[in-house]
Design a protein around this nucleic acid. Structure first.
Length: 817
DNA sequence: CAACGCCCTG
DNA sequence: CAGGGCGTTG
């Protein structure tokens, strides 16, 4: 898999060279390599973010609780001892049930598009957690090392370690993390096949159960289907999938690319397309482009879903943790609710012991218990109970105390508080659960809902395929809320995804989750290479400045959808969204997608050849995308492959730019006062708010080259002028703040004169001037390369650029001083 | 060969 | 300031 990645990247790179922006230097290949490593390690980044978040979560609690939290996501067995000891098992059971249901949905979702990836990721998390509990702390550290900017970076060698780290993480991610069978050495091929078979069977069973379950859900009408139908669908999906893969191969042949293994990866596809768009015969291929666009969108959707689920799970774990803190030694009267929650601790523990593969062998009984209808019903029951409880407790809620006071025994006071807390927790849980439900439902209902005008006749695919009537109110709102999660920053491909049919290919994307797991794994890994966060910032950038001046705090980093998600659970103490879901009235994010993508393109095209259209966004009104394709190819030929910049950080709207702005130019000019010859690494460090690619690096270096040029021209000019003026002694030559030379330089690099030119620069300028003076006086200027000696001297005079310049906001900070 | 930097031109 | 050519370096 890494081979494939690097291969494709190499070919991309070589092709790119043709369209280099002109500066012969290929500085960008450093950046490009880094970018490749970044993208290929996106999954590792995501994981690192998750684990980092979990770490931070755990760090707020002491050992046992932290452990139980870790377990809670996987298995509550960690609580079992504690809870049973305190005879409040039923309560905890209730919570566990809820929590587990939340988790179990990933399993339930497996047969559906986008679900498999989630479950895989969750399973991988479980595996990680289990390992982590065994005291393996190093792994997390490694991961963070690979995924996050490190603090101790040397300006010289920041790239090699990055690549190493990235490749490391990309290496172990497929095996360790993505594989549901996390016992590599123990399994022979036969075992693997057998497990795979079982896994598929279990999947099938789950499909049945889910479909059955959906029919219980309010507002969902499900025509019951037979396994045979489903099988047929699966087969069909597989065939479609094969067809598409063949298409990939064909296209690659056309591109005279070295034949690559058929990759389901949208990234590759899009890359192919981008390259292809430069070719004249692209009209013929608009169709295949559509296929790839859809794939890409689907991958993004998966990524989003995955992130959402993880977030929600984090929330749930938090809540659970709180719950157990409070109920550790208290009692309650919730048995009525808890009793129907079944024997969860048993099967939970059983599953935890059995490991990942055992999860697939869930019985139908269990599954029927996990269907969405029951889930929703229970949620409602909880809500009703809440309503009752909260009547009397609402007023006292202010005085919640989250710990046991020293003087507080198991008194009635404590008891009452526990009730309060329980209620609050339940509310939170409910809300969180609602979110889970919505998400899941959203997946189920991936609707052919009326999306932007379509050119191709829509294929009635998802509804039929899943037998889900998506017209229920819940589905709509769920859909919208999902979009709200990703709003502003993350493009929501859900809409366009489900609604952009591709003629001929019967929308095979739905079949992807059903493909063999290995393919899935690859798929996941690769699609995440397009991932959202790849664009956060270059790993070599300074985390300190980022976090302090850009609001790049770890929490927000790990939380792609912080506000809507966090706000939701607490928004309504008593009025949980039983009937109407909040977010129903949110504006459609469709327009935001456009604007956002347009922005992402615009910033990149900061100089020259602006073409008004958004990249990667498939325009339904322009089916062939011929014109767009051409203009797109123009853009790409300007700046190389844009796949490097596809990723949009959630913060990119205000912080990470994909192009150099006039402010960056200004900053560069001010930096020139300190460094005449900054290395590309240095530039990456100091322009941390810019997403580096070949273009940007070249541009920045070109800037400094131009600065030098001007500088040396001025020096020579003034030296000659002084000589002409009869100056004979070098000592008379100096650059002070009132001389002409200084004014010329200041005018050029500090036009607004709002920056105090450092004294060091004056010294360097003086030295330069004298060098020129001496050389000219000595008549060296007859030598065509006489300046080189001077350059050699000057290039050693670079001084440290102040730390302030590392801040993206350094202009404000500098100019306010 | 890639990376870099200078030079020239527009 | 950007584009492109060219030479140098490791």
């Amino acid at each position: 898999m890494p081979d494939h990645d690097s291969d494709s990247f190499l070919s991309r790179q070589t092709k790119r060279r043709r369209v280099d922006i002109g500066v012969k230097r290929t500085v960008g290949s450093n950046a490009a390599n880094a970018a490749a490593a970044t993208t290929s390690a996106d999954i590792a980044h995501a994981k690192a973010a998750i684990f980092g978040a979990m770490n931070s979560l755990n760090s707020h609690h002491h050992g046992a609780d932290a452990d139980s939290m870790d377990c809670s996501m996987v298995e509550p067995h960690g609580h079992a001892g504690v809870v049973t000891a305190t005879n409040s098992e039923s309560k905890s059971n209730m919570l566990r049930k809820l929590l587990k249901r939340a988790n179990s949905y990933e399993d339930a979702m497996i047969p559906f598009p986008g679900a498999n990836i989630i479950s895989q990721l969750l399973k991988s998390n479980m595996a990680k957690n289990e390992r982590g509990e065994r005291g393996d702390r190093g792994e997390r550290g490694d991961r963070e090392d690979g995924g996050f900017p490190r603090s101790g970076l040397s300006s010289g060698g920041s790239e090699a370690p990055q690549e190493d780290a990235c490749s490391n993480s990309s290496q172990d991610s497929p095996q360790e993390c993505l594989s549901p069978f996390c016992h590599p050495p123990a399994l022979g091929t036969f075992d693997l096949e057998r497990l795979n078979d079982e896994h598929l069977r279990a999947k099938r069973a789950r499909v049945e159960n889910i479909i059955r379950g959906m029919s219980h859900s309010p507002g969902v009408v499900v025509p019951t289907r037979h396994l045979g139908e489903r099988d047929h669908e699966l087969e069909q999906c597989g065939r479609e999938r094969e067809r598409e893969m063949d298409g990939d191969r064909d296209r690659e042949m056309e591109m005279d690319c070295p034949p690559q293994p058929p990759s389901p990866r949208g990234e590759v596809c899009s890359r192919e397309n981008k390259r292809k768009q430069r070719l004249p015969q692209q009209q013929q291929q608009s169709f295949t482009q559509l296929v790839c666009q859809r794939k890409e969108q689907k991958h993004e959707e998966r990524r989003q879903l995955k992130l959402q689920l993880e977030d929600m799970q984090k929330q749930l774990r938090q809540l659970q943790e709180k719950f157990f803190q409070i109920y550790d030694s208290t009692d309650d009267s919730e048995h009525d609710l808890a009793h129907d929650l079944g024997n969860m601790s048993e099967d939970s523990a059983g599953r935890s012991d059995a490991g990942g593969d055992d999860r697939t062998d869930r019985s139908d009984n269990e599954m029927s218990d996990l269907d969405p209808g029951h889930f929703l019903d229970r949620a409602r029951a909880l809500l009703q109970e809440q309503a009752l409880l909260s009547e009397g407790d609402k007023l006292r809620r202010e005085g919640l105390v989250w710990g046991k006071g020293p003087g507080q025994g198991p008194s009635s006071m404590h008891h009452a508080e526990g009730k309060l807390l329980a209620e609050t927790l339940k509310q939170e849980l409910n809300s969180a659960m609602n979110q889970v439900v919505d998400t899941v439902v959203k997946v189920f209902a991936k609707p052919p809902h009326p999306a932007p005008p379509q050119v191709f006749p829509p294929l009635p695919m998802p509804t039929e395929r899943f037998g889900v009537n998506v017209k229920g109110p819940n589905f709509h709102t769920a859909n919208q809320r999902l979009q709200c999660f990703g709003d502003i920053v993350i493009p929501n491909p859900l809409d366009s995804f489900g609604s952009i049919p591709v003629p001929g290919t019967n929308d095979q994307t739905e079949a992807l989750p059903l493909v063999v797991r290995k393919t899935q794994t690859e798929h996941h890994h690769q699609s995440s290479a397009v991932g959202a966060h790849g664009g956060h910032h270059h790993p070599s950038l300074h985390p300190s400045s980022l976090s302090t001046s850009m609001g790049f705090s770890p929490p927000s980093f790990r939380h792609p959808f912080p506000l809507p998600l966090m706000g939701y659970p607490f928004q309504s103490p008593l009025g949980p969204p039983s009937g109407g879901y909040p977010g129903k009235d949110r504006s459609s994010p469709d327009s935001m997608d456009l604007s956002r993508e347009t922005t992402s393109l615009r910033t990149k095209m900061s100089s020259g050849h602006h073409v008004g259209h958004h990249h990667r966004s498939f325009s339904p009104t322009n089916p062939g995308s011929t014109a767009e394709g051409l203009s797109l190819s123009l853009i790409k030929s300007e700046c190389g492959d844009m796949s490097d910049m596809n990723d949009i950080s959630p913060y990119s709207g205000s912080t990470i730019q994909e192009g150099l702005s006039p402010n960056h130019l200004k900053k560069a000019k001010l930096m020139f006062f300190y460094a005449r010859y900054p290395s590309s690494n240095m530039l990456k460090i100091f322009f941390s708010d810019v997403k580096f690619n070949r273009c940007i690096t070249s541009q920045l270096i070109k800037w400094f080259s131009n600065f030098r040029e001007f500088y040396y021209i001025q020096m020579e000019k003034f030296a000659r002028q002084a000589i002409n003026d009869g100056v004979t002694g070098v000592e008379e030559m100096s650059v002070s703040r009132d001389c002409e030379l200084y004014r010329a330089l200041n005018m050029h690099y500090n036009k607004a004169n709002d920056f105090e030119v450092p004294e060091l620069f004056l010294e360097v300028a003086t030295i330069t001037l004298r060098e020129f003076f001496n050389a000219i006086v000595a008549g060296k200027d007859v030598d065509p390369s006489w300046k080189k000696a001077i350059y050699k001297v000057i290039c050693k005079l670079d001084s440290e650029v102040p730390e302030v310049f590392k801040s993206p906001n350094c202009l404000q900070e500098l100019l306010h001083e």
